[in-house]
Design a protein around this nucleic acid. Structure first.
Lengths: 341, 341
DNA sequence: TTTGTTTATGCAATCGATTGCATCAACAAA
DNA sequence: TTTGTTGATGCAATCGATTGCATAAACAAA
């Protein structure tokens, strides 16, 4: 039936008035008298009028769309962030388009370009592990398209940033291990060009030094923190002498992997080797032993990112006010680290 | 520097030709001579020209955007589907906007409307648990906007549908339990207006009846399959006499919840009560005992959904060819169900 | 009555790309 | 030379909403 969508011109014609009046009336412009406004609203309703956001977008140069780039959509932390972003954006009248870099710099560049081309009003990004330079994002800055970074951030582009307090997380985790009587604490870390891993490492070192301890020689490893990396890491760590009595992992995946590997070894977790992870992935509370970890409020980070981005889009925040927002972490003590003396 | 974006008119002016020629040249229209085409491409490049997809969209009425509505973005199955959708869509030049209904019919209606208004070229949907009627989606059908349903589908709207073979999954799971010597198999199911749960139930019943067995009286429960629902379910099932010797759960979450609850009971899994879940969530291979389950290829379902949707958008598929595509499931045998005689 | 001020509405250009319909040049066939 | 054909390009309208700048009507002040 409905051959085509009704436009403001159709409404105008039906009422024998001009399209501009219709346009204004529908946006509650006070220039239009209450009477005509009501009349217009009524016919619009009757005709099933729906504003064409594409046309509006073309004219106003605002798409009411925000883009988000994450390494992997189906990773719990990231999907939680996306969930928070969607929730806030939806309430503010913005749509969210997602894209995943698969941790590839190449793809990230293309995705950024695609978002740019589609005229999103703002972008939320967490970098790929491969990403070392940020030229692909500078076009947003140049075009004054607001940008918010979360989790994997950079100093090279000026923007609002949202992270958890990785330093304090790393320190708290390590302090906890020290409190359990561990003295020889190894660390499995990620690539250091990502600040989050650098900060977790620094927190770990700070805790050690405050306790008068040293990292065991060869006890700090760097990899991409996958399951396989975890297996390789524990293999290496088991060759150290003396054996580490604890391992602080920069994420839960490697902690998991290490715990699983140790099941096939003479060493018991936590009694021989205590393990702490980072992120509080859903599985970490389920595996035996449950994994002590640092919780990271993904959903809240997503909400915050979206709030900041939208505030900047609306002009309520400007470049002078850029900050790095640090969200609190929480040490979640579970079985993998608790030693009963 | 870059005051405004270059348009085809800028290119036309620079070369002293018409905008239409530029437009055609940039789309490799053979009407334009190779020479001018090359010249145009070169200046476009130099001027940093980027096509304005919004303008194009307005004119062509295609947004190159597909929408997806899922109950929860940060649920592993759904985020995997979304990941697959994004991957395929991206390669085909489509952007993906996501929205989550939080299992609320109300919100789903609003999301559908928003997607409709934003002129998406197609929509992929998995319903909210609350959704019993589908009027909010009929506008897509009426406007000839392709629709694909996955997982939680309906017969009431004609469209391509993607599901896993829930019936056979339910049957296989149950047969497996029977093969383990279980004779008194309970079932925790979801709301039956969702076909997936209905089919899993039917598969379960079929397996029982083929083996000459009956479901235990009071041994089939219906709930929303949350952690809390699982706890309530096992509480109820433990009051049955005789006690069930196995429970087939319609998802892994309830299976998990039941296994955790049974830890505080005299009953051992699998020896006293064997448990099988459904979906192969990441945690199900990690918990002790690991959970036997039916794997559901979320990522692949997402890919397939996107492929079908895009094919229909491009007109390669039409309404005559709508089908329900059933993807295979796989029984993943783990500890929670295996009894050593 | 004239002038000035509000209030309400319309005109027409604009956003940038697309496309049906000319038009025109070049060349071939007659 | 004339006619026909092919190939290449331009014109101008269009998509639907927005908005600066008139304009008109109504009313108040002088």
């Amino acid at each position: 039936m409905k051959r085509t969508e009704a436009t403001i011109h159709d409404i105008a014609r039906a009422l024998n008035i001009s399209a501009s009046t219709v346009s204004r009336a529908l946006k509650d412009n006070p220039l239009i008298s209450a009477a005509t406004r009501e009349k217009i609203r009524k016919t619009a309703e009757e005709m099933g009028y729906r504003p064409n956001v594409v046309a509006s977008s073309l004219r106003t140069k605002r798409s009411n769309m925000i883009g988000i780039i994450v390494p992997y959509i189906n990773r719990h932390f990231f999907s939680s962030v996306v969930s928070g972003v969607e929730e806030v954006a939806y309430k503010a009248g913005f749509a969210v388009t997602i894209s995943q870099s698969n941790d590839s710099y190449q793809k990230e560049v293309q995705l950024a370009r695609a978002l740019y081309d589609s005229r999103v009003d703002g972008v939320i990004v967490s970098f790929a592990m491969d990403t070392h330079n940020f030229r692909h994002l500078s076009m947003f800055a140049e075009s004054r398209i607001p940008l918010v970074f979360f989790d994997r951030i950079t100093d090279e582009i000026d923007a609002n940033r949202i992270v958890v307090d990785d330093f304090s997380g790393g320190r708290t985790a390590t302090e906890h291990l020290i409190a359990q009587g561990c003295r020889n604490i190894a660390h499995v870390s990620g690539p250091l060009h990502l600040q989050i891993y650098d900060n977790r490492l620094k927190g770990y070192l700070a805790a050690l030094s405050e306790a008068g301890l040293q990292p065991p020689p060869g006890g700090i490893l760097h990899n991409r923190l996958t399951r396989a990396d975890g297996e390789e890491a524990i293999r290496q760590l088991l060759t150290l002498k003396p054996l580490p009595d604890a391992i602080f992992c920069a994420n839960d995946t490697t902690a998991l992997s290490i715990i699983l590997s140790l099941r096939n070894s003479p060493y018991k977790v936590p009694d021989d080797i205590a393990v702490v992870g980072f992120s509080n992935e859903p599985f970490s509370g389920l595996i035996t032993p449950t994994i002590t970890t640092i919780s990271q409020p993904g959903y809240e980070m997503g909400c915050r990112s979206a709030e900041l981005l939208i505030a900047e889009i609306k002009g309520e925040i400007n470049a002078m006010q850029y900050q790095t927002y640090t969200m609190p972490t929480e040490l979640i003590i579970r079985e993998s680290s608790v030693r009963v003396p």
